[in-house]
Design a protein around this nucleic acid. Structure first.
Lengths: 351, 351
DNA sequence: AACGAGCTCGGGTACGTACCCGTAAATATA
DNA sequence: TATATTTACGGGTACGTACCCGAGCTCGTT
């Protein structure tokens, strides 16, 4: 590296303070063994010189390994959505491993708040320097975020945000706009009645869902497009519950033109429509799951909205790396593109 | 750093090949002074071990400084738009300077293709490892990109893209969608006639302009909103030319409801509207310039569309740094948000 | 006064890579 | 054959920081 640039390191600080490099090092990492007087003197020089540590050298010399943790949903039989973020996380891991980064994995069950709390508790017992979190459960996540905050552990959120909560960054979809775009796409398929059904299939009413529906409804109000919106919550995610609920609502509202599913479980609705031969109803939902793609290709699903989940995992972990290792600034919010997948372009999609 | 992770460095390669570290180093940087036989042997071991150099150590040990160059428009009296990217570039510079990065600046005149070519020629004479480019002039930029390509110099584009041209990344607005959003906003202000004027004030007809107008028109066709679109090009950017051109067109089309300016020179139109007391006409354009903000506050401009120009500069340079120094992958396209600025929120905007 | 505990501090080595300098061997030139 | 030149390689130091291993010093205790 060039020397002519006016850059001062520990050596210069030591020289000016008439102490050794080791003493300067002790002050910088505020370890014990330095008198108040020299500590003050060194700190003054550090401030005067606006000393910026060389992170390259620092990481190289450090024998300490940095431990990161990820706390995300387990890949379940119900939905393989979380395969993609995990893939991205592992890709990031293999890239940064050689710089002394170790990553611990904690998985919770999306149908079980307790499992989240349990895994969070386990995680907090370890000495981790950063956490990648999918804050699926609002209240529980808030508590966890609070705990991390007191331990000064930076947090990166993926997939869904937790507004108002202190974090390093959020990497994921703009939920409101995703709902908005969904509504837009849906209008392409509307004909006469302008009557649509919003379906939320989830054990927990989460933040994601609320924002998405808000955006969805906003589109119609924004565009002054009158549209009757029927909505149901299906709290049990098994096939029978979905079938029963949909049978009931379709019986009540015979003139439904389209269905919007607020998460990746759109395949469950597609399966129902196929069985009940209601292929006249348009269907739109989220995420590039194998099952969803199948129904997309069969023509039962019209559109899928995707947010590059693998990249979310990759970027989330890399954000922590950037912050902790390189000391580089991290952008607070990074919205993923709102990708629109149809039968025609799905083959080329990079999930 | 931890040792237990199976990581092999030059030392291990040297040990296995029964040569010194220096020889391995020669092979890695394919310098001269190694016999074909040992070179082959070492290369085989490198491949076998899947050797990944430690970039931290590499940069630390290297006395070589990495030279980057930026080739962007000069800040002119006509428009101070390029102040913002330059600010971002300088911010990035000060952050990476200490890792031996030097940045050369080349500025060209947006009204003069020749100045671009001249600066490009100057730049190519230097031994630079990466270039941050604003490809304002299509043909000239393509030539320049070609030259960089043969010299294997990675290129980061900001502000406008050059599709089909080989580059490291593009960081900037989605031009088409910016036009699209502009049209959307404009419809908020339309009343009866649905007649709008598109104004392009520029010496050169650039790629930006074409894409933006395309997006603008698409909105109306997409939404089947019939709208008569009048358009003029004003090739001379001085005040008199603008005044003359606008006077003529407003005389011809007395029932214009709104004007869309396809770049940051919307202030010139605002000034004209103010003088000719045509405050009934809605106005929309681009960029957070001081003059534009003044007219926004006066109510002459209704909306400004912005794309975080400072961040574009910052991220553009950082992308090159990421690639060249950290060896980290860089995302090929990063679209900036399409920010909507009104009189009400402009005070809070981060340009 | 002698001793040890505790505090303050410096020397020196290591991290993984880059590269300068020197040297022995191989080859060319006389 | 003797000498010059080239080729092929190794030793060793440096980059800026972290941290181990002590050394000296002060002060209280006996």
């Amino acid at each position: 590296m060039k020397k002519d640039t006016t850059y001062y390191g520990v050596k210069e600080i030591a020289r000016r303070a008439n102490v050794s490099i080791a003493t300067v090092d002790r002050v910088i990492h505020n370890r014990t063994g330095v008198s108040e007087k020299t500590k003050r003197k060194i700190n003054d020089i550090i401030k005067e010189l606006d000393y910026q540590p060389n992170i390259l050298a620092s990481r190289l010399a450090s024998r300490k390994i940095i431990t990161l943790a990820v706390l995300i949903p387990r890949v379940s039989e119900e939905t393989d959505f979380w395969e993609a973020p995990l893939r991205g996380i592992k890709r990031a891991e293999s890239e940064i491993k050689k710089y002394g980064i170790e990553v611990l994995h904690y998985f919770f069950d999306l149908n079980d708040k307790n499992s989240f709390e349990e895994q969070a508790r386990k995680l907090l017992k370890e000495d981790v320097q950063g956490v990648l979190l999918s804050p699926s459960f609002i209240e529980e996540s808030k508590e966890f975020v609070q705990a991390c905050h007191t331990k000064k552990i930076p947090l990166a959120f993926i997939d869904s945000d937790l507004p108002g909560q202190d974090n390093l960054c959020y990497i994921g979809p703009h939920l409101f706009h995703s709902g908005y775009v969904s509504a837009k796409l849906l209008t392409y398929r509307l004909k006469e009645n302008h009557k649509v059904l919003v379906v939320n299939i989830s054990k927990e009413i989460d933040y994601n869902y609320q924002q998405i529906e808000k955006g969805f409804r906003s589109y119609f109000t924004d565009h002054n497009q009158p549209c009757e919106i029927v909505r149901i919550d299906i709290a049990d995610t098994d096939n029978l519950s979905v079938t029963n609920a949909l049978t009931r609502v379709l019986h009540e509202h015979k003139d439904l033109e389209a269905i919007f599913v607020t998460n990746s479980r759109v395949f469950a609705v597609a399966s129902f429509l196929k069985k009940s031969k209601r292929t006249d109803i348009s269907l739109i939902g989220f995420d590039f799951l194998k099952e969803n793609i199948n129904y997309l290709n069969e023509g039962l699903i019209d559109f899928l909205i995707c947010h590059k989940p693998e990249e979310q995992g990759y970027r989330g972990l890399m954000a922590l790396y950037q912050k902790l290792v390189l000391g580089a600034p991290v952008e607070k919010v990074h919205f993923m593109p709102i990708d629109i997948i149809t039968r025609e372009n799905q083959a080329f999609y990079q999930n």
